[in-house]
Design a protein around this nucleic acid. Structure first.
Lengths: 221, 221
DNA sequence: CTACTATTCAATAAAGTAATTGAATAGATT
DNA sequence: AATCTATTCAATTACTTTATTGAATAGTAG
């Protein structure tokens, strides 16, 4: 085995992993799995894929060892193999934002165009640069909130928000967050809240970023 | 534009970048460019590609904005767009080592099998956990050393090492380094030095890792 | 054992990617 | 202007990836 063969094998192995990540659907699946384990069915639903197609993509991710499975009853739950998978996804995501002005424009202009306030970096929130009566609002599905959420955050899933506006104290300031910077739930929440005269902004990042950073989290009992 | 279209576009943009990285030759090129700018010819030579093929891969990397060019005379020099490209490559590389036992075995067993001493993590070297008479040896090509190297390191390119053994003080301890963990120059150097009775080990990482970590570097005058 | 359900497999068609070769371009030198 | 050189482009071939569809599997519940 000469040098070149050795190098080829090493880079080939790395390229396999990178290729497994190099597909928009699979990146979306990884982004979703950063919230925790999901069944194939849920993954398919959340990513608008057919179940067979989602399963196929999950096989690819599993083949690259990026995800692992747990069987529970009739269901198979997929999850990221370890936190480094999330960190790599995050590196790619942030590199993408930095490199690709198009993607950047999309993220900044679509749901957050015009009158939208700028998102709050999570470091700012962590450092307590906000009124202590500011409410942290988790708008992800209830199940994801229960698995883990930012300490002291309250949960109102985005699809319940309009009916539950009355639960919010008057004159409250809100920081809404969801799955990550690509997740639009928080943008929708900010939209809705501001239409109702509430001072709301979104967190730039999502719960997995917060957790991976080692910031304080809570789980529901 | 509905939610799904927005999400698709965002993930598509990220997948473009990831796909551009998802090829063994291009990963090798990125790894090489972490040393600094190189002409197409040099890149082709270092990666054992034809010039046309190297150019093709470079176009793909440029299309994804991962590399940029500088024209000088007849030559076009390619370089990484910014340090985040290197950091993303590093995240992928380290994830690969972690996930892929095969690749891990290759790296650890081929050039560094059996009697080889374990590589030294750069943090250990930086923290001064070694005799102060330990010599840091840069075995990359002279040009790369001149562009930048670990502070106090001396340069003996790997292909000159056997003839220049006499330059080394007797009873010296050596830590050799090269381009990165996949680079075998340092392994070859350790091999050769130990055959000549010199206490030598390799640095696990390479110069770009050292520099990106913010550890002290020097440039040749 | 039967029926049911979640998931995977297999086959197909369409699209994209990689290496090779030789021609074309564009900038520098004479 | 003619020549030289580094690089890119274009065309080809072989190969890989993706989405779709429907069938197969393997567990669970009745």
């Amino acid at each position: 085995m000469d040098k070149r063969v050795f190098k080829d094998q090493a880079y080939n192995e790395l390229a396999k992993i990178t290729k497994a990540l190099g597909n928009p659907r699979r990146l979306e699946i990884v982004d979703l799995l950063a919230q925790g384990p999901f069944s194939v069915e849920k993954i398919a639903e959340q990513t608008s894929l057919s179940i067979a197609n989602a399963s196929q993509h999950l096989q690819v991710l599993k083949g690259a060892r990026l995800v692992e499975i747990d069987k529970k009853g009739n269901f198979i739950y997929y999850r990221l193999t370890n936190d480094e998978v999330f960190k790599t996804w995050r590196a790619l995501r942030d590199l993408g934002f930095r490199l690709n002005a198009e993607a950047e424009k999309l993220v900044n202009n679509f749901y957050r165009s015009g009158q939208k306030p700028t998102p709050i970096p999570m470091e700012d929130l962590y450092n307590g640069n906000y009124d202590k009566d500011t409410l942290i609002l988790d708008v992800r599905p209830g199940e994801e909130y229960h698995r883990g959420h930012i300490a002291n955050a309250i949960s109102i899933p985005i699809n319940e928000l309009s009916e539950r506006l009355g639960e919010l104290p008057s004159d409250v300031k809100i920081i809404a967050y969801c799955r990550g910077p690509l997740c639009v739930y928080a943008d929708e929440a900010v939209n809705l809240l501001r239409k109702n005269g509430i001072d709301a902004r979104r967190l730039k990042e999502g719960f997995p970023d917060w957790k991976s950073q080692g910031f304080s989290v809570e789980m529901s009992n």
